[in-house]
């Protein structure tokens, strides 16, 4: 779909930084309250998308332990870790950038509604990759994805509906990659490029694609339209390669009749995106160890029994041992 202007993404999924911070805070708070009230945060899901929240009687079992919730920053780390995993998984399957970007957007949008304490990000990450393939018409079966990375594919199928619903069924997502191609072919005209320059532009596009991959890991996709992400990626790459006079190119863009920006305004927006990339933080192993332990206890996954069951599943990957068959109201701690 070529029209971002009338898209659900523009209407519903681009936020101000303040609004975004509020959303993350609110999602975290909901999980914190669940933990206080029920002693656990895990929300159970079934394949038809129905959700089962922990109840207060779950509290009795956990009452002896004082569980600490993840902070907003710790949640951010947790998401960053699994967002990087989205890219890893997609690269392992050699999926196009578009699918990777769609999966990342899905993942980011999902965690506007939920805390990582309510739905484990690993499961959501896999489901987002699966759903992105499906929606981008690059169909790969859940089983294939599961097998390829040695994960139980039933989890994917179990979460699919809940993920789709959390996305409010807004499934078409705009990524910067297509826009970048558009800008680069536009630059050819702008430069009235000769053959050698066309080659340089090709390498610019390649470098910018890698920059866009980095941008996709930040909050930028929830804050800026894809065209601006594309320009930011191109500007960063051009900063190294020096193929075009970027300021003059920006001027040529804003001088077009339908442009809403001035050069300086657009330039500031691109600065903002660049600084998000510069300030991007990926958790250290030590951070992750700590956060992961906390997350497991919040999700009620800390008992050794539960862990061994999981490990068994992973090593044997039996054909049918779907956790969705488990009674939804059973105690979450197992």
């Amino acid at each position: 779909m070529a029209d971002f202007q009338t898209s659900t993404q523009r209407a519903k999924w681009v936020f101000t930084p303040q609004k975004l911070a509020e959303r993350y805070k609110a999602a975290n708070q909901r999980a914190v309250q669940l933990l206080e009230k029920c002693g656990t945060t895990q929300v159970e899901v079934d394949a038809s998308g129905s959700l089962t929240y922990p109840t207060e009687n779950a509290r009795d079992q956990a009452a002896d332990k004082k569980l600490k919730p993840l902070s907003v920053d710790e949640e951010r780390f947790m998401r960053a870790f699994y967002e990087a995993k989205v890219q890893e998984v997609c690269s392992a399957f050699e999926f196009p950038h578009k699918i990777q970007a769609t999966a990342l957007q899905y993942f980011k949008r999902f965690y506007l509604q939920w805390s990582v304490m309510q739905h484990h990000p690993k499961e959501i990450m896999l489901t987002c990759v699966y759903a992105a393939c499906k929606i981008e018409e690059n169909h790969v079966s859940a089983e294939e994805i599961g097998k390829g990375i040695k994960q139980d594919h039933h989890i994917i199928l179990k979460y699919e509906m809940a993920v789709l619903q959390s996305l409010e069924f807004d499934l078409i997502v705009f990524a910067p990659y297509r826009a970048m191609e558009g800008f680069v072919s536009n630059m050819e005209e702008f430069l009235q490029a000769r053959d050698d320059e066309i080659q340089k532009l090709e390498s610019l596009l390649k470098a910018a694609t890698a920059e866009a991959d980095k941008i996709m890991l930040t909050d930028a996709p929830l804050l800026f339209p894809p065209g601006q992400l594309a320009l930011a990626a191109l500007r960063i790459a051009n900063g190294v390669l020096g193929v075009v006079d970027f300021d003059r190119y920006l001027e040529s863009i804003v001088s077009q009749p339908n442009s809403e920006h001035t050069t300086s305004h657009l330039s500031n927006l691109l600065d903002d995106i660049e600084s998000l990339v510069k300030n991007y933080k990926y958790p250290s192993e030590k951070d992750m160890k700590h956060i992961n332990r906390k997350l497991k206890s919040c999700l009620g996954h800390s008992s050794s029994h539960d862990e061994s069951k999981k490990r068994e599943k992973r090593s044997k990957h039996k054909s049918h041992r779907s956790s969705s068959d488990a009674p939804p109201n059973g105690p979450p701690a197992g």
């Binding site: 779909m1 029209d3 009338t6 898209s7 659900t8 394949a47 038809s48 998308g49 699966y130 499906k134 929606i135 169909h139 079966s141 859940a142 089983e143 994917i156 199928l157 699919e160 509906m161 789709l164 069924f169 807004d170 499934l171 078409i172 969705s324």
Partner: peptide, 24 residues
């Protein structure tokens, strides 16, 4: 029907939803 299909949510239904969400 959602059912327990091997391939999850009906792809035809998903196509229809994703398109009609954007086409007004």
């Amino acid at each position: 029907r959602i059912g327990k299909h091997k391939e999850g949510v009906n792809i035809t239904a998903l196509r229809e939803i994703k398109m009609l969400k954007e086409l007004k």
